[in-house]
């Protein structure tokens, strides 16, 4: 299971696919004060990233990774060295 959901946090693990939106979306609507943890997320479908960006929910585990996960942080950009 790539996402585990608690009222406080959604933890992404491995590849999070578009099919996981079915669970994620209602959870987001119900838990607007929660955070998203992408520390162990290896890749995510565009739809997942889109909904995260749209929700404006705080994301943890994406700071200073220097990799693609930077898209979760504002200004949603990735710079590769």
């Amino acid at each position: 299971m790539p996402i585990s959901l608690t009222p406080e946090a959604a933890v992404f693990e491995g590849h999070v696919d578009i099919t996981d939106i079915d669970q994620l979306h209602p959870w987001m609507v119900a838990n607007t004060g929660a955070v998203l943890d992408v520390t162990d997320c290896t890749s995510a479908h565009t739809a997942v990233v889109q909904i995260v960006v749209a929700s404006g929910m705080p994301v943890i585990g994406a700071e200073d990774t220097g990799d693609w996960r930077s898209v979760f942080n504002k200004p949603h950009s990735v710079k590769q060295v």
Partner: peptide
């Protein structure tokens, strides 16, 4: 050769509940 990329958001997002997550908006 990707050096930099950025997601472009729409002008405004609808309410999360009203959002259709399966339509590409970015």
């Amino acid at each position: 050769g990707l050096m930099w990329m950025q997601i472009q958001e729409p002008e405004s997002w609808p309410d999360l509940e009203a959002l259709d997550p399966f339509i590409v908006q970015i």
